[in-house]
Design a protein around this nucleic acid. Structure first.
Lengths: 209, 209
DNA sequence: CCGCATCCGTTTCGATACTG
DNA sequence: CAGTATCGAAACGGATGCGG
Protein backbone atom coordinates (compact mmCIF):
# COMPACT_ATOMS: atom_id res chain seq x y z
CA UNK A 1 0.00 0.00 0.00
CA UNK A 2 1.16 3.46 -0.84
CA UNK A 3 1.74 6.12 1.81
CA UNK A 4 1.50 9.87 1.33
CA UNK A 5 4.47 10.51 3.60
CA UNK A 6 3.19 13.88 4.74
CA UNK A 7 3.60 15.20 8.25
CA UNK A 8 -0.11 16.04 8.46
CA UNK A 9 -2.97 14.52 10.41
CA UNK A 10 -5.26 14.30 7.40
CA UNK A 11 -2.64 12.47 5.37
CA UNK A 12 -1.84 10.17 8.28
CA UNK A 13 -5.51 9.30 8.63
CA UNK A 14 -5.83 8.59 4.92
CA UNK A 15 -2.74 6.40 5.07
CA UNK A 16 -4.75 4.16 7.36
CA UNK A 17 -8.37 4.49 6.25
CA UNK A 18 -8.08 6.13 2.84
CA UNK A 19 -8.27 3.03 0.70
CA UNK A 20 -11.38 1.91 -1.06
CA UNK A 21 -14.06 0.29 1.17
CA UNK A 22 -12.17 0.98 4.40
CA UNK A 23 -14.34 3.76 5.83
CA UNK A 24 -17.50 1.93 4.81
CA UNK A 25 -16.23 -1.08 6.69
CA UNK A 26 -15.67 1.10 9.75
CA UNK A 27 -19.16 2.55 9.31
CA UNK A 28 -20.70 -0.91 9.44
CA UNK A 29 -18.86 -1.69 12.68
CA UNK A 30 -20.04 1.43 14.51
CA UNK A 31 -23.16 -0.20 16.00
CA UNK A 32 -21.15 -3.23 17.09
CA UNK A 33 -18.88 -6.07 16.05
CA UNK A 34 -19.72 -8.27 13.09
CA UNK A 35 -18.67 -11.55 11.62
CA UNK A 36 -16.87 -11.88 8.31
CA UNK A 37 -20.01 -12.97 6.54
CA UNK A 38 -22.06 -10.21 8.16
CA UNK A 39 -19.61 -7.66 6.80
CA UNK A 40 -19.77 -9.22 3.34
CA UNK A 41 -23.55 -8.91 3.41
CA UNK A 42 -23.42 -5.34 4.69
CA UNK A 43 -20.93 -4.17 2.07
CA UNK A 44 -22.57 -5.14 -1.21
CA UNK A 45 -20.03 -5.23 -3.99
CA UNK A 46 -16.93 -5.85 -1.93
CA UNK A 47 -15.06 -9.01 -2.82
CA UNK A 48 -13.95 -11.57 -0.30
CA UNK A 49 -10.25 -11.07 -0.93
CA UNK A 50 -10.51 -7.32 -0.46
CA UNK A 51 -12.52 -7.66 2.73
CA UNK A 52 -9.90 -9.99 4.16
CA UNK A 53 -7.16 -7.58 3.16
CA UNK A 54 -8.90 -4.59 4.75
CA UNK A 55 -9.60 -6.50 7.95
CA UNK A 56 -5.96 -7.46 8.23
CA UNK A 57 -4.81 -3.92 7.52
CA UNK A 58 -7.15 -2.33 10.07
CA UNK A 59 -6.20 -4.94 12.65
CA UNK A 60 -2.50 -4.22 12.15
CA UNK A 61 -3.15 -0.54 12.74
CA UNK A 62 -5.22 -1.14 15.86
CA UNK A 63 -8.48 0.19 14.44
CA UNK A 64 -10.33 -3.10 14.81
CA UNK A 65 -9.73 -6.33 16.69
CA UNK A 66 -11.01 -9.88 16.58
CA UNK A 67 -13.19 -10.71 19.52
CA UNK A 68 -13.79 -14.35 20.35
CA UNK A 69 -17.25 -14.65 21.81
CA UNK A 70 -17.63 -17.13 24.67
CA UNK A 71 -19.43 -20.41 24.00
CA UNK A 72 -22.05 -21.30 23.04
CA UNK A 73 -21.81 -18.40 20.58
CA UNK A 74 -18.68 -20.06 19.24
CA UNK A 75 -17.95 -17.34 16.79
CA UNK A 76 -15.45 -14.55 16.27
CA UNK A 77 -16.42 -11.03 15.36
CA UNK A 78 -14.48 -7.99 14.19
CA UNK A 79 -15.11 -4.95 16.36
CA UNK A 80 -13.83 -1.39 16.56
CA UNK A 81 -11.20 -0.79 19.20
CA UNK A 82 -11.18 2.37 21.31
CA UNK A 83 -8.96 3.84 18.60
CA UNK A 84 -11.42 2.76 15.95
CA UNK A 85 -14.23 4.55 17.72
CA UNK A 86 -12.23 7.77 17.36
CA UNK A 87 -13.09 7.54 13.66
CA UNK A 88 -16.82 7.92 14.31
CA UNK A 89 -16.80 11.74 14.10
CA UNK A 90 -15.00 11.59 10.76
CA UNK A 91 -17.42 9.00 9.39
CA UNK A 92 -20.41 11.05 10.52
CA UNK A 93 -18.92 14.25 9.09
CA UNK A 94 -18.50 12.57 5.73
CA UNK A 95 -22.06 11.32 6.02
CA UNK A 96 -23.29 14.84 6.67
CA UNK A 97 -21.57 16.00 3.51
CA UNK A 98 -22.76 13.10 1.40
CA UNK A 99 -26.32 13.29 2.68
CA UNK A 100 -27.02 16.24 0.40
CA UNK A 101 -26.54 13.95 -2.59
CA UNK A 102 -29.12 11.46 -1.41
CA UNK A 103 -32.04 13.41 -2.86
CA UNK A 104 -31.16 12.01 -6.25
CA UNK A 105 -31.81 8.34 -5.59
CA UNK A 106 -30.14 6.17 -8.17
CA UNK A 107 -32.70 3.53 -8.77
CA UNK A 108 -30.28 0.65 -8.43
CA UNK A 109 -28.77 1.80 -5.14
CA UNK A 110 -28.36 -0.75 -2.43
CA UNK A 111 -30.02 -0.02 0.88
CA UNK A 112 -29.34 -1.41 4.33
CA UNK A 113 -30.97 -0.76 7.69
CA UNK A 114 -27.56 -0.72 9.35
CA UNK A 115 -26.43 2.31 7.37
CA UNK A 116 -29.58 4.13 8.39
CA UNK A 117 -28.96 3.22 12.02
CA UNK A 118 -25.54 4.82 11.82
CA UNK A 119 -27.01 7.90 10.18
CA UNK A 120 -29.25 8.41 13.22
CA UNK A 121 -26.15 9.44 15.15
CA UNK A 122 -25.77 12.56 13.06
CA UNK A 123 -29.44 13.20 12.24
CA UNK A 124 -30.50 13.20 15.88
CA UNK A 125 -30.96 16.56 17.64
CA UNK A 126 -31.05 16.31 21.44
CA UNK A 127 -34.58 15.94 22.72
CA UNK A 128 -35.96 16.79 26.12
CA UNK A 129 -37.49 13.41 26.81
CA UNK A 130 -35.36 10.35 27.53
CA UNK A 131 -36.36 6.97 26.11
CA UNK A 132 -34.95 3.59 25.23
CA UNK A 133 -36.27 1.78 22.18
CA UNK A 134 -35.73 -1.53 20.48
CA UNK A 135 -35.78 -2.22 16.75
CA UNK A 136 -36.68 -5.66 15.46
CA UNK A 137 -36.25 -5.35 11.73
CA UNK A 138 -37.04 -8.36 9.65
CA UNK A 139 -33.93 -10.25 8.63
CA UNK A 140 -31.69 -8.01 10.77
CA UNK A 141 -30.13 -8.40 14.18
CA UNK A 142 -31.87 -6.38 16.89
CA UNK A 143 -30.84 -2.78 17.52
CA UNK A 144 -31.16 -0.89 20.76
CA UNK A 145 -31.19 2.90 21.06
CA UNK A 146 -31.24 5.27 24.00
CA UNK A 147 -31.70 8.99 23.52
CA UNK A 148 -32.38 12.17 25.43
CA UNK A 149 -30.92 15.60 26.11
CA UNK A 150 -27.38 14.25 25.90
CA UNK A 151 -27.70 12.72 22.45
CA UNK A 152 -28.36 9.27 21.08
CA UNK A 153 -26.69 5.91 21.27
CA UNK A 154 -27.58 3.26 18.71
CA UNK A 155 -26.04 -0.17 18.87
CA UNK A 156 -26.50 -3.85 18.26
CA UNK A 157 -28.30 -5.75 20.96
CA UNK A 158 -31.27 -5.70 23.23
CA UNK A 159 -32.10 -4.09 26.54
CA UNK A 160 -34.83 -2.57 28.64
CA UNK A 161 -36.95 -0.53 26.26
CA UNK A 162 -39.96 1.74 26.56
CA UNK A 163 -41.14 0.48 23.20
CA UNK A 164 -40.27 -2.13 20.58
CA UNK A 165 -40.67 -1.68 16.84
CA UNK A 166 -41.27 -4.79 14.75
CA UNK A 167 -41.04 -3.84 11.12
CA UNK A 168 -39.95 -4.79 7.65
CA UNK A 169 -36.91 -2.97 6.30
CA UNK A 170 -39.28 -1.08 4.00
CA UNK A 171 -41.55 0.12 6.83
CA UNK A 172 -38.52 1.03 8.92
CA UNK A 173 -37.21 3.05 6.00
CA UNK A 174 -40.52 4.84 5.61
CA UNK A 175 -40.45 5.85 9.26
CA UNK A 176 -36.88 7.12 8.87
CA UNK A 177 -37.88 9.20 5.88
CA UNK A 178 -40.31 11.07 8.09
CA UNK A 179 -43.54 9.08 8.03
CA UNK A 180 -45.51 9.38 11.26
CA UNK A 181 -45.12 6.37 13.52
CA UNK A 182 -48.78 6.35 14.54
CA UNK A 183 -49.91 6.46 10.92
CA UNK A 184 -47.62 3.58 10.04
CA UNK A 185 -48.84 1.67 13.06
CA UNK A 186 -52.47 2.33 12.20
CA UNK A 187 -51.95 1.07 8.65
CA UNK A 188 -50.35 -2.13 9.95
CA UNK A 189 -47.13 -1.34 8.08
CA UNK A 190 -45.33 -2.07 11.32
CA UNK A 191 -46.03 -2.95 14.92
CA UNK A 192 -45.06 -1.09 18.07
CA UNK A 193 -45.26 -2.74 21.46
CA UNK A 194 -45.12 -0.46 24.49
CA UNK A 195 -45.18 3.32 24.64
CA UNK A 196 -45.48 4.44 21.03
CA UNK A 197 -44.72 7.99 22.17
CA UNK A 198 -41.07 6.91 22.46
CA UNK A 199 -40.88 6.44 18.69
CA UNK A 200 -42.95 9.57 18.07
CA UNK A 201 -40.44 11.57 20.15
CA UNK A 202 -37.52 10.01 18.30
CA UNK A 203 -39.15 10.76 14.97
CA UNK A 204 -39.48 14.43 15.92
CA UNK A 205 -35.83 14.58 17.00
CA UNK A 206 -34.52 13.20 13.70
CA UNK A 207 -33.56 15.80 11.11
CA UNK A 208 -34.41 15.16 7.46
CA UNK A 209 -31.66 13.10 5.88
CA UNK B 1 -14.53 5.90 -11.57
CA UNK B 2 -16.28 3.26 -9.60
CA UNK B 3 -19.32 4.08 -7.49
CA UNK B 4 -20.42 2.25 -4.37
CA UNK B 5 -24.09 2.58 -5.29
CA UNK B 6 -25.21 2.65 -1.68
CA UNK B 7 -28.07 4.79 -0.44
CA UNK B 8 -25.92 6.18 2.39
CA UNK B 9 -24.39 9.57 3.02
CA UNK B 10 -20.95 8.18 3.81
CA UNK B 11 -20.88 6.19 0.58
CA UNK B 12 -22.16 9.16 -1.42
CA UNK B 13 -19.39 11.32 0.02
CA UNK B 14 -16.75 8.73 -0.81
CA UNK B 15 -18.11 8.45 -4.34
CA UNK B 16 -17.07 12.08 -4.74
CA UNK B 17 -14.01 12.55 -2.53
CA UNK B 18 -12.95 8.98 -1.76
CA UNK B 19 -10.29 8.60 -4.41
CA UNK B 20 -6.61 8.95 -3.75
CA UNK B 21 -5.33 12.53 -3.25
CA UNK B 22 -8.80 14.07 -3.41
CA UNK B 23 -9.25 15.00 0.25
CA UNK B 24 -5.67 16.24 0.46
CA UNK B 25 -6.39 18.48 -2.49
CA UNK B 26 -9.44 19.83 -0.70
CA UNK B 27 -7.33 20.34 2.44
CA UNK B 28 -4.89 22.51 0.53
CA UNK B 29 -7.71 24.69 -0.78
CA UNK B 30 -9.22 25.38 2.64
CA UNK B 31 -7.19 28.56 3.28
CA UNK B 32 -7.98 29.85 -0.20
CA UNK B 33 -7.81 29.22 -3.93
CA UNK B 34 -4.60 28.08 -5.58
CA UNK B 35 -3.13 27.82 -9.01
CA UNK B 36 -2.36 24.52 -10.69
CA UNK B 37 1.34 24.82 -9.96
CA UNK B 38 0.69 25.86 -6.35
CA UNK B 39 -1.31 22.68 -5.88
CA UNK B 40 1.43 20.59 -7.45
CA UNK B 41 3.92 22.08 -5.02
CA UNK B 42 1.61 21.60 -2.05
CA UNK B 43 0.85 17.95 -2.83
CA UNK B 44 4.30 16.37 -3.05
CA UNK B 45 4.12 13.08 -4.88
CA UNK B 46 1.03 13.73 -6.95
CA UNK B 47 1.56 13.55 -10.67
CA UNK B 48 0.37 16.15 -13.12
CA UNK B 49 -2.07 13.89 -14.90
CA UNK B 50 -3.70 12.83 -11.66
CA UNK B 51 -3.99 16.41 -10.41
CA UNK B 52 -5.67 17.41 -13.64
CA UNK B 53 -8.05 14.48 -13.37
CA UNK B 54 -8.99 15.28 -9.78
CA UNK B 55 -9.51 18.95 -10.55
CA UNK B 56 -11.85 18.06 -13.38
CA UNK B 57 -13.73 15.54 -11.24
CA UNK B 58 -14.21 17.94 -8.33
CA UNK B 59 -15.26 20.71 -10.69
CA UNK B 60 -17.88 18.47 -12.29
CA UNK B 61 -19.29 17.71 -8.86
CA UNK B 62 -19.38 21.33 -7.80
CA UNK B 63 -16.82 21.00 -5.01
CA UNK B 64 -14.36 23.43 -6.58
CA UNK B 65 -14.51 26.04 -9.32
CA UNK B 66 -12.06 27.92 -11.47
CA UNK B 67 -11.87 31.57 -10.55
CA UNK B 68 -10.42 33.99 -13.05
CA UNK B 69 -8.73 36.75 -11.12
CA UNK B 70 -9.09 40.23 -12.59
CA UNK B 71 -6.10 41.85 -14.30
CA UNK B 72 -3.35 42.52 -13.69
CA UNK B 73 -3.25 39.24 -11.75
CA UNK B 74 -4.01 37.51 -15.02
CA UNK B 75 -4.23 34.09 -13.50
CA UNK B 76 -6.83 31.46 -12.75
CA UNK B 77 -7.08 29.67 -9.45
CA UNK B 78 -9.04 26.67 -8.24
CA UNK B 79 -11.10 27.44 -5.16
CA UNK B 80 -13.60 25.61 -2.99
CA UNK B 81 -17.23 26.40 -3.70
CA UNK B 82 -19.77 26.81 -0.90
CA UNK B 83 -20.39 23.09 -1.31
CA UNK B 84 -16.70 22.40 -1.07
CA UNK B 85 -16.46 24.29 2.20
CA UNK B 86 -19.01 21.84 3.62
CA UNK B 87 -16.20 19.30 3.51
CA UNK B 88 -14.10 21.21 6.03
CA UNK B 89 -15.58 19.46 9.10
CA UNK B 90 -14.87 16.08 7.56
CA UNK B 91 -11.29 17.01 6.69
CA UNK B 92 -10.70 18.36 10.19
CA UNK B 93 -12.26 15.27 11.77
CA UNK B 94 -9.93 13.04 9.78
CA UNK B 95 -7.06 15.27 10.83
CA UNK B 96 -8.03 14.88 14.46
CA UNK B 97 -7.92 11.12 14.06
CA UNK B 98 -4.68 11.07 12.15
CA UNK B 99 -2.95 13.54 14.49
CA UNK B 100 -2.40 10.76 17.01
CA UNK B 101 -0.07 9.06 14.55
CA UNK B 102 2.12 12.12 14.14
CA UNK B 103 4.18 11.35 17.23
CA UNK B 104 6.11 8.82 15.20
CA UNK B 105 7.70 11.14 12.66
CA UNK B 106 8.90 9.21 9.67
CA UNK B 107 12.15 10.89 8.90
CA UNK B 108 11.45 11.33 5.22
CA UNK B 109 8.03 12.90 5.65
CA UNK B 110 7.25 15.98 3.68
CA UNK B 111 6.22 19.06 5.62
CA UNK B 112 4.35 22.15 4.50
CA UNK B 113 3.30 25.29 6.37
CA UNK B 114 -0.06 25.22 4.62
CA UNK B 115 -0.99 21.88 6.21
CA UNK B 116 -0.10 23.28 9.59
CA UNK B 117 -2.24 26.35 8.93
CA UNK B 118 -5.22 24.10 8.24
CA UNK B 119 -4.52 22.11 11.40
CA UNK B 120 -4.90 25.31 13.44
CA UNK B 121 -8.60 25.16 12.71
CA UNK B 122 -8.99 22.02 14.77
CA UNK B 123 -6.22 22.61 17.31
CA UNK B 124 -7.54 26.01 18.36
CA UNK B 125 -9.63 26.24 21.52
CA UNK B 126 -11.65 29.45 21.82
CA UNK B 127 -9.73 32.12 23.69
CA UNK B 128 -11.05 35.09 25.59
CA UNK B 129 -8.94 37.67 23.80
CA UNK B 130 -9.58 38.63 20.19
CA UNK B 131 -6.65 39.28 17.87
CA UNK B 132 -5.74 39.37 14.22
CA UNK B 133 -2.30 38.21 13.15
CA UNK B 134 -0.34 37.96 9.95
CA UNK B 135 2.12 35.23 8.98
CA UNK B 136 4.93 35.98 6.56
CA UNK B 137 6.64 32.63 6.13
CA UNK B 138 9.63 32.51 3.90
CA UNK B 139 8.79 31.17 0.48
CA UNK B 140 5.07 31.06 1.27
CA UNK B 141 2.17 33.33 0.43
CA UNK B 142 1.01 35.43 3.39
CA UNK B 143 -1.58 34.04 5.78
CA UNK B 144 -3.99 36.05 7.88
CA UNK B 145 -5.73 34.72 10.99
CA UNK B 146 -8.36 36.15 13.30
CA UNK B 147 -9.31 34.42 16.52
CA UNK B 148 -11.25 34.95 19.70
CA UNK B 149 -14.11 33.48 21.72
CA UNK B 150 -15.92 32.39 18.56
CA UNK B 151 -13.08 30.36 17.11
CA UNK B 152 -10.39 30.94 14.54
CA UNK B 153 -10.28 31.79 10.87
CA UNK B 154 -7.07 31.17 8.95
CA UNK B 155 -6.83 32.08 5.30
CA UNK B 156 -4.61 33.27 2.51
CA UNK B 157 -4.08 36.99 2.31
CA UNK B 158 -3.31 40.05 4.33
CA UNK B 159 -5.28 42.41 6.50
CA UNK B 160 -5.21 44.62 9.54
CA UNK B 161 -3.21 42.74 12.14
CA UNK B 162 -2.19 43.29 15.74
CA UNK B 163 1.09 41.57 15.01
CA UNK B 164 3.06 40.17 12.09
CA UNK B 165 5.30 37.11 12.24
CA UNK B 166 8.21 36.95 9.82
CA UNK B 167 9.73 33.51 10.05
CA UNK B 168 11.35 30.64 8.24
CA UNK B 169 9.22 27.52 7.80
CA UNK B 170 11.40 25.87 10.44
CA UNK B 171 10.90 28.60 13.04
CA UNK B 172 7.18 28.68 12.29
CA UNK B 173 7.09 24.93 12.82
CA UNK B 174 8.91 25.25 16.11
CA UNK B 175 6.34 27.77 17.33
CA UNK B 176 3.51 25.45 16.26
CA UNK B 177 5.08 22.59 18.18
CA UNK B 178 4.74 24.60 21.35
CA UNK B 179 7.88 26.72 21.59
CA UNK B 180 7.29 30.03 23.32
CA UNK B 181 6.98 32.95 20.93
CA UNK B 182 8.97 35.32 23.14
CA UNK B 183 11.80 32.80 23.45
CA UNK B 184 11.88 32.30 19.69
CA UNK B 185 11.82 36.05 19.20
CA UNK B 186 14.59 36.59 21.72
CA UNK B 187 16.79 34.01 19.99
CA UNK B 188 16.25 35.73 16.63
CA UNK B 189 14.74 32.54 15.21
CA UNK B 190 11.90 34.72 13.95
CA UNK B 191 10.71 38.30 14.07
CA UNK B 192 7.44 39.68 15.38
CA UNK B 193 6.33 43.19 14.56
CA UNK B 194 3.54 44.64 16.66
CA UNK B 195 1.92 43.25 19.79
CA UNK B 196 3.73 39.99 20.47
CA UNK B 197 1.05 39.14 23.02
CA UNK B 198 -1.22 38.31 20.09
CA UNK B 199 1.00 35.36 19.15
CA UNK B 200 1.50 34.44 22.80
CA UNK B 201 -2.29 34.26 23.22
CA UNK B 202 -2.65 32.18 20.07
CA UNK B 203 0.09 29.84 21.23
CA UNK B 204 -1.74 29.26 24.50
CA UNK B 205 -4.99 28.55 22.65
CA UNK B 206 -3.47 25.89 20.40
CA UNK B 207 -3.74 22.32 21.66
CA UNK B 208 -0.77 19.98 21.22
CA UNK B 209 -0.98 18.40 17.78
C1' DC C 1 -21.72 -22.76 5.83
C1' DC C 2 -17.94 -19.72 7.46
C1' DG C 3 -13.50 -17.61 6.73
C1' DC C 4 -10.50 -16.80 4.03
C1' DA C 5 -6.50 -17.56 -0.16
C1' DT C 6 -5.40 -17.82 -5.16
C1' DC C 7 -5.70 -16.71 -9.86
C1' DC C 8 -6.54 -13.47 -13.52
C1' DG C 9 -8.59 -9.63 -16.37
C1' DT C 10 -9.54 -4.66 -15.77
C1' DT C 11 -8.94 -0.17 -13.83
C1' DT C 12 -6.36 3.09 -11.47
C1' DC C 13 -2.09 5.09 -10.19
C1' DG C 14 2.82 6.69 -10.65
C1' DA C 15 6.78 8.24 -13.37
C1' DT C 16 8.35 10.58 -17.20
C1' DA C 17 8.17 12.96 -21.44
C1' DC C 18 6.11 16.32 -24.09
C1' DT C 19 2.96 20.36 -25.88
C1' DG C 20 0.03 24.86 -26.29
C1' DC D 1 2.31 28.06 -16.43
C1' DA D 2 -1.05 24.61 -17.26
C1' DG D 3 -1.87 20.92 -18.53
C1' DT D 4 -1.87 16.13 -22.14
C1' DA D 5 0.13 11.56 -23.69
C1' DT D 6 2.27 7.29 -22.94
C1' DC D 7 3.51 3.24 -20.50
C1' DG D 8 4.80 0.02 -16.65
C1' DA D 9 3.34 -1.03 -11.83
C1' DA D 10 0.07 -1.58 -8.36
C1' DA D 11 -4.61 -1.96 -6.79
C1' DC D 12 -9.11 -3.53 -7.53
C1' DG D 13 -13.08 -6.65 -9.11
C1' DG D 14 -14.84 -11.21 -10.18
C1' DA D 15 -14.64 -16.03 -9.97
C1' DT D 16 -13.18 -20.03 -7.87
C1' DG D 17 -10.90 -23.22 -4.57
C1' DC D 18 -10.33 -25.10 -0.03
C1' DG D 19 -9.68 -26.24 4.90
C1' DG D 20 -12.27 -26.27 9.34
Amino acid sequence: MRLYRQFCGVARALDIVGERWTLLLVRNLIPGGQRYSDLLEGLPGITTNLLAKRLKHLTEHGVIEQQHLPPPAASTVYALTALGHELVPAVLALGAFGARFMDTPHTDDHTHPRWAMVSLRRRFRPSSATYAVQFQIEGQPPYWATFGPDGIDVRDGTGDADAVMVASPRAFGAWLMGRDIRALHASNALRVDGDIEAFAALGRAIQPL
